[in-house]
Amino acid sequence: MSQDVSIIIPAKNEFASLCLLLPALRKNHPGAEIIVVSDGSTDDTEKVCVTHNVVLLKHPYSMGNGAAVKSGARAAHGKILVFMDADGQHNPEDIPRLLSKLQEGYDMVVGARHSNSQASLGRSYANKIYNWLASWMVGQKIDDLTSGFRAVHADKFRQFLYLLPNGFSYPTTITMSFFRAGFTVTYVPIFAGRREGKSHVRIVHDGVRFLLIIFKVGTLYAPLKFFFPISLGFFFTGLFYYLYTFISYRHFTNMSALLFITSVLVFLIGLVSEQITVLNYKDSEK
């Protein structure tokens, strides 16, 4: 593998899985720069990184998966960045498949998890909803919106560092940013194995946060396309309610007025969001 490739691995207390992952990466990709970003780890992550002679970046406290990704991207020297999880889900042998697709002219290649890959039933359905919504927004099929396994050109990725959140939803943000900026994205099917160690995703807290991904998808790509149907929903609800009350009581109710006003406000919010979105991408390469 070329020395122009940097493999970035955000890690939080993943000593056990790194003991297996790092030697496999060294064996299969000896020419690559390997960067482990320890996000406030309290285990022996530093020790295993020294043993396998990889670059170690340390956060003094846990800042989030997205923050670790950004730290790794800033420090990497390669022209191509490969991001993968430290928990053993991603197979180092899949990296050449991502890179070969990148060489075909794509700007970013994402490893799309197989339906039988390790995941809870709830998360599986949630991912299907995310993928469907994102596909509708961009007008192209998106196989895996939230996958953390991807290869991308470093110069293009760094353009959007300021947009990336510090939490777990960075894959959604960077994917929609690439589509919005007119960069090409493709997917390569992978099988994500069962993770080693304990998951850092909290069901209730992160369940609410992942729900917000749905709104982020809309606001990152085409806010008006997201807000306009909501505005229409309020408008027609108000219209039907008005017709009902007019026929029944012969007057215009406060509820009808509230629904019409809400419809207008949601539409205006969509217009403003659309203009802000344009400003976010005004400096991206075409």
Rank of each mutant, 00 (worst) to 15 (best):
residue 51 T to G: 00
residue 185 V to T: 15
residue 152 V to S: 04
residue 237 T to M: 11
residue 172 T to K: 00
residue 113 R to T: 00
residue 64 G to A: 11
residue 96 P to E: 02
residue 143 D to C: 06
residue 31 G to N: 15
residue 193 G to W: 08
residue 74 R to P: 00
residue 271 L to F: 07
residue 263 S to K: 08
residue 58 K to R: 14
residue 183 F to T: 00
residue 85 D to Y: 00
residue 285 E to G: 05
residue 62 S to Q: 05
residue 260 F to C: 01
residue 245 T to L: 01
residue 5 V to Y: 02
residue 27 K to W: 10
residue 251 H to T: 05
residue 81 L to H: 14
residue 213 I to A: 06
residue 212 L to H: 09
residue 282 K to D: 03
residue 11 A to D: 07
residue 114 H to S: 13
residue 67 A to L: 01
residue 181 A to M: 08
residue 266 V to R: 05
residue 155 D to K: 11
residue 88 G to I: 05
residue 165 P to K: 08
residue 33 E to P: 03
residue 109 V to Y: 07
residue 282 K to T: 03
residue 208 V to N: 10
residue 156 K to T: 06
residue 8 I to P: 00
residue 22 L to I: 08
residue 209 R to I: 12
residue 77 H to K: 13
residue 196 E to D: 14
residue 286 K to W: 05
residue 102 L to V: 04
residue 176 M to C: 09
residue 76 A to W: 05
residue 110 V to K: 06
residue 12 K to G: 02
residue 272 V to N: 05
residue 146 T to P: 02
residue 157 F to Q: 04
residue 20 L to V: 14
residue 199 S to I: 07
residue 264 V to S: 04
residue 55 V to L: 08
residue 273 S to W: 04
residue 231 S to W: 09
residue 159 Q to W: 02
residue 155 D to Q: 12
residue 111 G to P: 00
residue 183 F to G: 03
residue 105 G to E: 01
residue 178 F to M: 11
residue 104 E to W: 04
residue 97 R to K: 15
residue 271 L to G: 02
residue 62 S to F: 01
residue 265 L to P: 02
residue 152 V to Y: 06
residue 137 M to D: 05
residue 283 D to Q: 08
residue 199 S to C: 12
residue 104 E to S: 10
residue 177 S to R: 03
residue 7 I to S: 05
residue 263 S to A: 15
residue 184 T to I: 06
residue 204 V to E: 15
residue 188 V to C: 09
residue 35 I to Y: 04
residue 99 L to K: 11
residue 113 R to A: 13
residue 36 V to C: 10
residue 49 C to A: 08
residue 218 G to D: 12
residue 77 H to M: 04
residue 255 M to H: 03
residue 5 V to T: 15
residue 260 F to V: 03
residue 118 Q to A: 11
residue 242 Y to A: 15
residue 186 T to A: 08
residue 221 Y to C: 10
residue 50 V to A: 13
residue 5 V to P: 13
residue 280 N to R: 13
residue 203 I to M: 11
residue 114 H to C: 03
residue 209 R to Q: 12
residue 49 C to S: 06
residue 98 L to R: 04
residue 231 S to P: 11
residue 105 G to S: 03
residue 107 D to V: 07
residue 113 R to H: 03
residue 46 E to Q: 09
residue 270 G to R: 08
residue 56 L to W: 01
residue 276 I to E: 05
residue 211 L to Y: 13
residue 118 Q to T: 12
residue 275 Q to I: 12
residue 80 I to E: 01
residue 254 N to L: 09
residue 208 V to C: 10
residue 91 N to P: 01
residue 12 K to P: 00
residue 209 R to E: 15
residue 75 A to S: 10
residue 36 V to S: 07
residue 140 Q to R: 13
residue 54 V to G: 08
residue 266 V to P: 03
residue 249 Y to F: 12
residue 128 K to N: 07
residue 30 P to I: 06
residue 106 Y to P: 00
residue 153 H to I: 02
residue 194 R to F: 11
residue 274 E to I: 00
residue 101 K to S: 09
residue 5 V to W: 10
residue 111 G to A: 09
residue 243 L to M: 15
residue 139 G to H: 10
residue 59 H to W: 14
residue 244 Y to C: 04
residue 186 T to N: 14
residue 242 Y to L: 13
residue 164 L to A: 13
residue 73 A to S: 07
residue 131 N to A: 09
residue 130 Y to M: 11
residue 271 L to Q: 12
residue 38 S to A: 05
residue 113 R to Q: 05
residue 269 I to A: 08
